[in-house]
Design a protein around this nucleic acid. Structure first.
Length: 420
RNA sequence: GGUGGAGUCGCCUAGUGGCCGAGGGCGCACGCCUCGAAAGCGUGUGAGGGGGCAACCCCUCCGUGGGUUCAAAUCCCACCUCCACCGCCA
């Protein structure tokens, strides 16, 4: 969501942002609706003031005066009802438009319709070289008895999986490694609900745009969140934090659920795209300052890179284009990790700055040192999402025997074993 | 799942239809006093929207949404959340 005053003052910037992000939004309609909401509100205010003063006079009035007042009140009531209806309708229309209004993307974002316009800004490491024919993660996991696909799909359908044995320990080691790194950076570890209310999903911006991506539990009016960010924003929604509490830094842990409706039939093999996965998410609430926001963006990105560097995984960092970053993002950098079986990179991390777009939706504010109440900035980035990263790890670190060389950083979590 | 109780301005609390256009205390801020502080005294102390060059003014908000009434924090209904007990349960 944007500031209505900002939209009034900079309609061209909003128009340009919508165009760059490929969002269908009629800014003139938005401006007109905003104008009529304000006009109606003003009329209603005046009528309301009149009505209140009439009711106040009533108590002290004699019978004759009361009859007179009643007549005036009846007339006013009709007018009030009409104004309220008109205002409610205009407000609903405005809200609908506001929810579809994008953040203005940063000036460095490549302009383009989709991911083909993304730009690789750096790469780290080298693809591993093998003196044997490497297996893909599905073959490898099955060879080691580390995963069950057929049986899992028997109970849970397509894209289901079960991890077994050392694969589970390895997955847990990845999460522990990420959590410890974030703890060292003054993040607070927090496990959050995945089962969330609709308002939480509107607050983060998943709704109304990507409803079809989210599992719904209609019997209880709940949904399964695709990321811990939904609960983390929701938990602070409606709050006014003190400036001293900022920045809020969370390592949010949760199971994540995604319907993958837009990619039906793609990546159906293995662990690359599943409906249920485990994620440690980096999440920051900071003050509403572009430079501060930028610093945190760099910090979150750098932490994710450190994690991958520690694991010795080859990756690239991508500057995401306006058309690929989504409605609420100011800036987005994906990190794509190398998958030997695919002979290419696949997205394993996504680092996003939302500026105050999300905070406005969720009504998440803080009191600045001068006493002013402002909408905060929010940012998020993956720390570790498995099993996708687990798949990358086993593919990259496999030996000819099918054993896995454990990266040094994970050994403390695996009883110092060097090979699995 | 059942029964009972509760949700008021950061915190505690007053408030059972019009003097609530929300009172008091704590906390906080500023001032007086003081060498300085404490205590004491005084003043101030929420959010949103709108209008005005400005001092300032108007409207909305007492968990949320409806309803009754000329008038609702107060009465009625639904929902949300919390507490207690019973049942069930990892």
């Amino acid at each position: 969501m944007l500031d209505r005053r900002f939209i009034r003052d900079h309609p061209d910037a909003v128009r340009e942002a919508a165009r760059a992000k490929g969002i269908d939004l009629d800014v003139d309609e938005l401006l007109q609706t905003d104008k009529s909401v304000r006009n109606l509100q003003h009329e209603l205010d005046d009528a309301q003031a009149e009505r209140k003063s009439s009711a106040r006079q009533f108590a002290r009035a004699d019978e004759a005066r009361r009859a007179e007042l009643r007549a005036g009140q009846a007339e006013l009531d009709g007018r009030l009802r009409q104004l309220r209806d008109e205002l409610a309708e205009a407000s609903a229309q405005l809200q609908e438009l506001m929810l579809r209004t994008p953040t203005i993307p940063w000036e460095g974002a490549p302009v383009g319709a989709d991911e083909s316009a993304n730009v690789t800004i750096r790469t780290w490491g080298e693809p591993p070289s093998f003196d044997f024919e490497p297996l893909d993660h599905v073959e490898l996991l099955e060879k080691r008895g580390w995963a069950e696909f057929a049986r899992a799909r028997k109970v849970a359908g397509e894209r289901a999986y079960a991890l077994r044995g050392d694969a589970v320990l390895l997955e847990r080691a990845l999460h522990s490694y990420a959590i410890d790194m974030l703890l060292n950076r003054d993040f607070t570890v927090i496990s959050v609900p995945s089962l969330v209310k609709e308002e939480a999903l509107i607050g983060t911006g998943q709704f109304p745009g990507h409803r079809e991506e989210t599992y719904a539990i209609p019997a209880d009016d709940l949904y399964l969140a695709g990321t811990a960010e939904v609960a983390l924003v929701g938990m602070h929604s409606g709050e006014i934090l003190d400036k001293k509490q900022l920045p809020v830094r969370y390592a949010g842990i949760s199971p994540c659920f995604r319907r993958e409706i837009g990619s039906a039939g793609r990546d159906v093999r293995g662990l690359l795209r599943v409906h249920q996965f485990e994620k440690v998410e980096q999440f920051v609430i900071c003050e509403a300052d572009a430079a501060e926001s930028d610093r945190w963006h760099a910090e979150l990105l750098s932490t994710a890179e450190h994690l991958l560097q520690g694991l010795g995984l080859h990756y690239e960092v991508v500057e995401t284009s306006t058309g690929d970053m989504g409605i609420g993002k100011y800036r987005m950098n994906d990190i794509n990790t190398w998958f030997p079986s695919l002979n290419r990179f696949r997205e394993t991390h996504s680092c996003s700055s939302l500026h105050d777009w999300q905070a406005r939706r969720a009504n998440l504010r803080y009191r600045d040192t001068d006493g002013t109440v402002r909408f905060a900035h929010t940012l998020n980035n993956t720390a570790i999402a498995t099993p996708r990263l687990l798949a990358a790890l086993v593919e990259n670190d496999q030996a000819a025997t099918g054993e896995i060389r454990v990266p040094e950083v994970l050994r403390p979590y695996l009883r110092q074993r060097e090979l699995l």
